[in-house]
C-alpha cells in the first residue's frame, strides 16, 4: 500500500470528483472566453476610432483589468461589491463575469494592435471603392489582421485556463479545491498523496493547454512561411 500512492486517485469517487472539478474550471473558462472574445473584438475595433472620449474610456477599462491582479478582481466582485451594492451573484457567475471582462479587456488590445498594423493603403483602397466604415472593418481590416491576432489570443486563452486555479479562493469547487479535499481526507493512508493529486491536476491542465500552444506554434510557423514566401 505504501508504495502505491497513485491509488489515492482511484479511492471511492475521487476520480469522478476531480474530473467534476475540472469540468467546472473548464466550463467557466470556456464561457468567459467566448463572451470575452466577442466583446473584445467589438471593443478593440471601437478603440481604433478617432473619438477621444470613447478611446479614453476604453483605455481605462483595459488598464483597470490589466493592472489589477485577477485575485484582487475576484475578491472585489465576490466579497466587496455585494457588501456595498446589494448585488449577490453565485461564485461561479462571479468567476465567469470577471474572467470574461478580463479576457475582453486584453483581447481589445490585441485586436486594436492587429487592426492598426494593417497598412493605410488598404484603408485608402477600401474607401476608394466606396466601402463604408462598417464594411471597411468587415472586409478589409479584420480579415487582414486576424492572422496577427491569433497567436496572442491563444496565449491569452491558455492564461485564462491556468488562472482558473485561483477560483478556490472564492469558494468555487474547482479542480484544485477538490484536490485539496482529497489530499486532506486521505493524508493518513497516503503520506505523499499530495504528489499524486497535484501531479494528476498538472496532467489535466497540460491536456487542456498544450494542444493550444502547439496550435499557436503551428500558426506562427505558417505565418512565417506566408511572410517570407
Amino acid at each position: 500500500m505504501a508504495h502505491s500512492g497513485i491509488n489515492i486517485l482511484f479511492e471511492g469517487r475521487n476520480m469522478v470528483r476531480l474530473l467534476g472539478g475540472l469540468w467546472i474550471s473548464a466550463k467557466i473558462a470556456a464561457i468567459a472566453i467566448v463572451v470575452g472574445l466577442v466583446l473584445g473584438i467589438v471593443l478593440g475595433a471601437l478603440r481604433t476610432l478617432h473619438n477621444p472620449l470613447l478611446r479614453a474610456i476604453l483605455r481605462l477599462y483595459l488598464e483597470f483589468f490589466r493592472v489589477i491582479p485577477t485575485v484582487v478582481l475576484l475578491f472585489l466582485f465576490y466579497y466587496i461589491l455585494p457588501q456595498n451594492f446589494n448585488i449577490n451573484m453565485g461564485a461561479e457567475s462571479v468567476a465567469t463575469l470577471v474572467f470574461a471582462l478580463w479576457f475582453a479587456a486584453e483581447m481589445s488590445d490585441i485586436v486594436r494592435g492587429g487592426i492598426i498594423s494593417v497598412s493605410p493603403h488598404q484603408v485608402d483602397s477600401g474607401k476608394a471603392i466606396g466601402l463604408n466604415r462598417l464594411q471597411l472593418y468587415y472586409y478589409v481590416l479584420l480579415p487582414q489582421s486576424i492572422q496577427l491576432m491569433i497567436p496572442a489570443t491563444i496565449n491569452l486563452v491558455s492564461r485564462v485556463i491556468k488562472t482558473t486555479s485561483l477560483l478556490l479562493l472564492i469558494s468555487v469547487m474547482d479542480v484544485i479545491n477538490v484536490g485539496q479535499q482529497i489530499i486532506e481526507a486521505n493524508g493518513q493512508r497516503y503520506e505523499n498523496g499530495s504528489f499524486w493529486v497535484y501531479g494528476f491536476i498538472f496532467i489535466l491542465y497540460f491536456i487542456l493547454c498544450y494542444p493550444l500552444s502547439l496550435w499557436a506554434r503551428h500558426l506562427e510557423r505558417k505565418e512565417l512561411v506566408n511572410a517570407n514566401g
Partner: peptide, 14 residues
C-alpha cells in the same frame, strides 16, 4: 471548511 479533518472535510465518496 473542506480540508480540515476532523472538523470539516470530505470523505472519499464526496
Amino acid at each position: 471548511f473542506g480540508d480540515l479533518q476532523p472538523y470539516g472535510w470530505v470523505t472519499k465518496s464526496g
